[in-house]
Design a binder for these strands. Structure first.
Lengths: 143, 143
DNA sequence: TTCCTTGCAAAACTTTTGCATTAAA
DNA sequence: TTTAATGCAAAAGTTTTGCAAGGAA
C-alpha cells in the first residue's frame, strides 16, 4: 500500500541510502518522489506522479518534481521513455527490458529481456557504440 | 535539388496521384509538403519542414502543416516517430525499418530490416496482436 | 556563511483549435 | 453551390526557467 506512512518506514531508509549513493542530497521532496517510484516497478507520467504525491499529502511543486525526475534519470535511478509524442513516461525499472504499448488504452507493459532474442544486430557506425536498445511493441485489438 | 521548381515537375505529378490515391484532395499546400517529404526518405521535425517550405517560397501556415502531417500519417503516407520526448519526427519512409539514434547529435539513421533478426518475440497478450515494432538503437561516442 | 533546493509564476515550446476566409469539386 | 482546406491568432498541454525565500552543511 502506497500511503504517506510508507515514507517514514522501511522503504524510506533504502531511498535515502540510494539517493546518497548517487550523490543526491536526500531532501524531503526527493525522498517522497523516490519512495513513490522505487517502491515497485511502474510507468508514470509527471502529471500522474504529481497527482499521487498530492493525494498522499506531499507538498511538492511542479518545478521540483521535474527537476527531480530529470535528476533521477540523469543518475540512472529511473529511466525516461519515449513511447508517444505527447509526454514523457518515467520507468522506475532501470534493468534492461522492453515494452508493449497498447495503442487503444495507452498502457505500457514490461517485456522481459529473455522474451526477445536478437540473433542479428547491425554494427554501430564507426566511432560509435550501442548505448542502449529501446524496443516498443505496439499492440492493437485482435479482430 | 529541392527547389520550388521541383514542385512543378516530375515529382509533383506523382505526388498528386499519390494523394488522390489516398483519398486526399491535392491542394497546393499539400502538394508542396508531399513533394518535399516524398522526394527522398528523410527524418524531419515539423519545424524543420516548415523552415524548408518557407525557404522554398511556399506559403504554408503552421496549422495547415500540422493538419497535413497528421493527415499524411493517418493515411500511411508518412510515419510519425517517437525517439525523444521533445517533439515528433516524421519519417517519409513507411516501409518497415528501424533506427539508429545518435545521442550526441540527435541524428536519426535508418537500420534496414535485414540488419536485425528477432529469433524470439513475446506472444502479444490475449485479445491483442502486434501492430508494429519500433526499435531504436541509441548510439554514443566510442571511448 | 555558502551552497543547494524549493516554490511560484512566468516563459518557452510544441501542437491543437475556433473561426472567418478562400479554394476546390 | 456546397463542402473542404487554409491562415491567423489564441488556446492547450508539457516542460523549463528566473528569482526570491528557505534549508542543509
Amino acid at each position: 500500500m502506497m500511503t504517506a506512512g510508507t515514507v517514514a518506514e522501511g522503504p524510506a531508509v533504502d531511498c535515502g541510502a540510494r539517493l546518497s549513493a548517487c550523490g543526491i542530497r536526500p531532501t524531503a521532496q526527493r525522498l517522497r518522489i523516490a519512495s513513490l517510484l522505487l517502491a515497485a516497478p511502474q510507468h508514470r507520467s509527471a502529471e500522474q506522479i504529481l497527482a499521487s504525491l498530492r493525494a498522499e499529502g506531499a507538498r511538492v511543486s511542479k518545478a521540483t518534481l521535474y527537476n527531480t525526475l530529470n535528476l533521477f534519470a540523469a543518475r540512472g535511478l529511473i529511466r525516461q521513455l519515449s513511447v508517444d509524442g505527447a509526454r514523457a513516461w518515467f520507468d522506475s525499472n532501470v534493468d534492461p527490458h522492453y515494452h508493449f504499448h497498447d495503442l487503444a488504452s495507452g498502457a505500457l507493459t514490461d517485456v522481459p529481456v529473455p522474451a526477445v532474442h536478437f540473433s542479428r544486430l547491425p554494427d554501430p557506425p564507426p566511432g560509435t557504440e550501442i548505448a542502449g536498445i529501446d524496443l516498443v511493441i505496439r499492440l492493437r485489438k485482435k479482430m
